[in-house]
Nucleic acid binder design. Sequence first.
DNA 1: TCTGGGGTCCTAGGACCC
DNA 2: TCTGGGGTCCTAGGACCC
Length: 426
Amino acid sequence: MFALVDCNSFFASCEKVFRPDLEGQPVAVLSNNDGCVVARSPEAKQIVKMQATLFSIKDLVERGELHVFSSNPVLYKDMSRRVIETLQHFSPEVEQYSIDEAFLGLQGFVNRDLTDYGQQMRTTVQQWTGIPVSVGIAKTKTLAKLAAQVAKRNPDIEGVLDFETLEDIDAVLAVIDIGEVWGIGKNLRAKLNALGIKQVLDLKQANEKLIKKKFGILTRRTVMELRGVPCFPMEPVAAPKTMRIVSRSFGHLVTELSDIKEAVATYTTRCAEKLRDDGLVARQFAVSMRTSYYREQNQYAAARSVELDPPTNDTAVLIPMAMQLAEAAFKPGYEYLKAKVIATELSPAGAVQGNLFSAPVNTEKRDRLMATIDGLNRKLQPDAVKFGAMGLNPSWQMRSEYFSQRYTTHWDEIPTVRIWQPKQSR
DNA sequence: TCTGGGGTCCTAGGACCC
DNA sequence: TCTGGGGTCCTAGGACCC
């Protein structure tokens, strides 16, 4: 048996934890660059659509009818860690599936009342972290995810649904659209619809050989999982990353190569930090930039890549490479919206294959330098020590007008509690 | 007016092997 | 008259997820 624990309106819930004054009020969280809505509190779901642009909801915000926040990834990651650590009290097998979801293996717990156990998870996470969650329980991961969705949508279920307690699972599956199923996206949904497969029950009863032939092995597995045959096992140990990407839209359109280079140097620094956190080095490194897709004319996009020999995660090695790649990709006369760096062909640092034909590199000193910089930046503040190529006063930086605070990770942003004292009566 | 960021996996097809 | 069989590796592109 599997449980899927899903945080409700996760980013919006994180913001609300530290703003008790917003209890019961509509809250939405914006994408990077304050682009569009990516998370909504239950109250906000009534009045704004997912992906609504900030512009389209500005009136609501100005009238005080909707509270919006810029994306605060440091806060969300830390809150996510707290939720996962709480869940580890409920099973030795916890697989973090995404920033706001985790699967729990329930093998050892089948003699319990699992609905009751799910309720315990829910109240404990709420109490320890302030985050509301929904819990789905079933024989397979796919069914557990579906159960959590049903639990979330039906208030009378109180946040926990164990499919095995239902008298007739099929009756429930018969009224759920296949688009809700984990692994069935927009495209597959349309193709399956064309074959008359519309509700989850249709998919469960579809001919698996035909499904495999037409849609591949993954979709076949999805069908089997709907029948209660587990095809996606628990993966408690995260697989090593195969790529690292840093990409951002600029706060405003950029035309100068010098600005692009500052941005690319900054993204390269972030990317190298991630690699060092992972203990990985990259063999391939690429830089790309583009204009807006939403403009009809004067579009341009270009990418350049380089092989790193030996593979590295050294910021000081990567930045000069990135600068060359940026220069090579840049074409004057365009208004650039976004740049991106990608590190691929990753392998564990320390297990690097030497090159027979190039001089052996002693990276020990460089590794210490990077570790020192990382240590200082962790201890003091991000970019306390940084590379000159990143620029001192970036004009291209993304918009983040409604930023809250990094309440749980930065001493000077820690929440303040004001105690109200009644006036002394004379 | 503005429309995000960061990933993973599978498949088809070509090149090449014996 | 028809023209083998079985396989690996790589890449681009498409699909999915949150």
